[in-house]
Amino acid sequence: MKIIKIIMWRINFIIAKISGSLKRLGWMQVFKIILNKPIVKPVAFSLIMQDKETSIGLYKSDFFPDLWIPLQKNPGLDVDQYLFKYDLYHNTYIGDLISRGDTVIDCGGYIGLFTLWCLKKGAKRVIVFEPEKRNYECLRRNLSSYIDSGKVLLIGKGVWSTGGSMGLRLTESGVGHSLLSGVEAIDSTPIEVVEIDTVIQDLVPNERIGFIKMDVEGAEREALIGAKGAIARDKPKMFICSYHLPDDPQVITNIVMETQPDYRVDYTGFASNDRGFIQEQGVVFT
């Protein structure tokens, strides 16, 4: 059965490329993915020091500045996932969507790499949501100078359609933690969730939101409901991940367009699952 799934995945992947669904990927990248080869150069990290109390470590590499990352055997695996998404961000012209002076909302901050990129692009301020405690501590240390200056507002809570408490299902590494049931997890921990609109009103009521990025493991649709005020008022450009649930592309599009019908919508990137189906990595709203 597993071999059949792998074969079907590869067949569907090639069909998706031929049909034009993967137009941002070259054939060389497609073949690398089919053969389970990395399409980005792996990042080699060496551990400089570790904080056993918080289960995080300071890692050195030739690619990044020294970074605090949740302790694991190979943190490069998680960061490689980010680099792959980072490449998708560029291929989906997100670099052109973030403008100098923007107030950005980063939902699913991980260890701060996307936030650092936004600041490099000239963002005025980034509001970062990250509920998992190890990632939060890494963010706090990696972005300390920006937090002190007020350019980064770090929120140790999840994003949802209402405020309250929920269980966060934890994975073994630093990524993939989810509020959804049915997700493979090694543990669960209670976290506080908030509406984005409430946080904006409390922290930056007079600032226009220029860009929103969401990668929150299936909570995107609920988080968008909690951001309807900002979406209707400011019409921020947005990149919303849409590969966590099978109907994400359509459901996410419907929520946004019902809130602000003046958007242009593009579907971009790719994602796949163990059944071999291909769907859009994200929805871009401009």
Rank of each mutant, 00 (worst) to 15 (best):
G112P: 06
D234H: 15
F239H: 12
Y89M: 07
N91G: 13
A123Q: 05
R24V: 00
T115E: 01
Q201R: 13
K5A: 08
R221F: 08
D62I: 06
L119R: 13
I39A: 07
G156K: 13
K124V: 01
M214V: 09
G76D: 04
V104Q: 02
V79W: 07
Q250I: 09
S61H: 14
G101C: 06
A232G: 12
F239L: 07
E130I: 06
Q72N: 11
I191P: 06
H90I: 09
W27S: 00
I39G: 10
M166P: 10
L119Q: 09
T253D: 03
K73T: 12
D51E: 14
S61K: 11
T286L: 04
N135E: 05
I39V: 14
D266Y: 11
N206R: 11
R125Y: 02
M214G: 05
K120D: 08
K157A: 12
Q281V: 01
V284S: 04
D247E: 13
Q201I: 05
L77P: 04
M28A: 10
G109Y: 07
I98L: 13
V152P: 13
A223V: 07
V152T: 10
A44H: 15
Y243S: 02
L203D: 00
D234P: 14
E184I: 08
N74C: 04
M49F: 14
L153E: 11
Y93D: 12
L180M: 10
R169C: 01
P190S: 10
R134V: 01
E172W: 07
K124N: 05
Q81W: 07
Y136D: 00
I147K: 08
F114P: 02
K23A: 00
D51S: 11
S145T: 15
N36R: 14
N12K: 02
M1H: 13
L67K: 12
N91T: 07
N142T: 11
F31A: 00
E53Q: 15
G112T: 05
L154N: 08
N135H: 06
V40H: 11
K23Y: 00
D66M: 06
I94E: 08
D102A: 04
L119H: 08
L153P: 10
G112E: 01
M49N: 15
K23N: 00
E53W: 12
L245N: 14
D202I: 05
L71T: 13
G226D: 00
G163R: 13
I255Q: 05
D197W: 08
N135P: 08
D247N: 15
S145F: 13
A232T: 10
T115W: 02
W160G: 05
G182E: 03
M166D: 03
I127E: 01
C118N: 04
D262V: 08
G76M: 02
V283I: 14
D106T: 12
S21Q: 06
I48L: 15
E184L: 07
Y243R: 02
W68Q: 01
A219W: 05
R169W: 02
D266A: 13
A219S: 15
L25H: 03
E184S: 09
